[in-house]
Each structure stands twice: as C-alpha cells, then as structure tokens.
Amino acid sequence: MPVGAGHAHVLYRDANSPVHRLPPEVKIAAMVAFTVAVVATPRAAFWAIGAYALLVAVVAALARVSLPWLLTRSAIELPFVLFAFALPFIGAGERVEALGMSLSVEGLHGAWNILAKGTLGVWASLLLAATTTTRDLIVGLDRLRCPQIITQIATFMLRYLDVLVGEARRMRVARISRGDDPRFLWQLRGFAAGIGTLFLRAFERGERVYLAMLSRGYTGRMPAVWQGAGAATTGQWLIGATVPLLAGTVAATAVVLT
C-alpha cells in the first residue's frame, strides 16, 4: 500500500528511482551510518572527503536528483557554518599569508573540517528528504523502533499542521479585514494576541481529538496497523548498506593512513 500518497513536502522530488523505492528505514539507517563515517574521518584526509562527495554524486544520479538542486538547497547550512569562516582569523598557532591576510593554519583546517563534513551531512539528509515522503519517514522511524511517543507526535504534527496554518490564515484575514496593518514591530499586538488564541484553539482541539480517539477504543497505545506491510527485506538492507559500507571503508583507511 502506498502509505505516503498525498504527503509530499517541499523537499520531496517525485520520481520512480531505485532510491525512491528503497524502504524508508533502510534509507534512514544508511544516511545516519554515512554521516557517522564522514564525521569519524581525520580532517587531514582530503582525498576521503572527495571520495564521499563522489558517493553522494552517484546516489544523487541514481535518485534523479540534479546537482544544481542539491547545491541550492545546501544553502540551508549557511547560518550553521558561518562560524567556520571566522576560524582562520581567530585561530591560534602557526600562520600563513594569503591574499594579504594573515591566517591561522589550525583555523584553516578547522574551517575546512566543519564546512566539508557539514556539507556532506546536509547532502545526505537532502537526498533522504528528496526521495522519501514525510509519511514514509515516520513509518521508517517507527520500524527502526523509534519510541512511539516521538513518532506519534510527528504523525499528529503532519496531520494538523495544515489545519493550524489554515486557522492562522483565517484569523489573519479577519484581522486585516478590520483594518489591522502591522507594518512595524510595535504594531504586532494583534498578531501576538492571535498566537495566544491559536494556542488555545490547538489545545481545545487536542482535547476533542482525544475524546474522539477514546470513543473508538483508544487505550493509550497506537495499534500497529500497517507497519508489518512492506517492511524492508534482507536484500533491500544489503543494497542500502553499500553506501555506508563504502564510506566506512574510506573512513577506516583514512584513520590508518594518518
């Protein structure tokens, strides 16, 4: 059963590739294992980073995800790696001259380390997001024995996000219709009050949803309805393991060589 039907998110690229067809739990496990291998690599092993980038490129090609898309979406990491750009200037120890600036060698290594590993991690996550619907992500986490409370919260968020956004939008239209025009920070009173109202409504809705669940025999645990169907086979696990295994080999070699 295509459990994910109708649950595309902004990052999801609809296609029918071998990567799309892999069960979500395999892709999640592969993504995490790959990232761990990348992080464990000594920072001086530049060739290893190149090998990882090559792996990402191969998977992207298999998943029919274009490189420009991958590169533009990587911009998300910018706020997190800004600190890396400061490292060469504030780092201590031996310094080199480049473009008329005195830069710390230690800092340059540090910046490269954060930037390269961060980017590889973001790419791996983007590939997972581009090939897996939100619904499948939750199903995958569930099959990986992620605590049910977390998957349940994620499921509710997935279901009610649109309802809440719709409510917020209607409240905003009603506010604007009565002449509210918050252009400046000090005019945000109406907006702030709206947030409060929205919270109360969400709270009340939560109570009604819970009553409706009780009425259908809910006893505090979600019945495992479809988890059994379509879980990954050994073959699929093996296919999914190729990328993290290769990455692991690269990491191990890099550790031995340095």
Partner: peptide, 14 residues
Amino acid sequence: DQLFLPTVAEDVAF
C-alpha cells in the same frame, strides 16, 4: 477532530 491520521485508510482502520 475525528480524522487524526495521515491517510483515510489508516484512520478508518484505527
């Protein structure tokens, strides 16, 4: 309030 799961079939199965 009644339909709280991501797909119709899952909700009817609840």
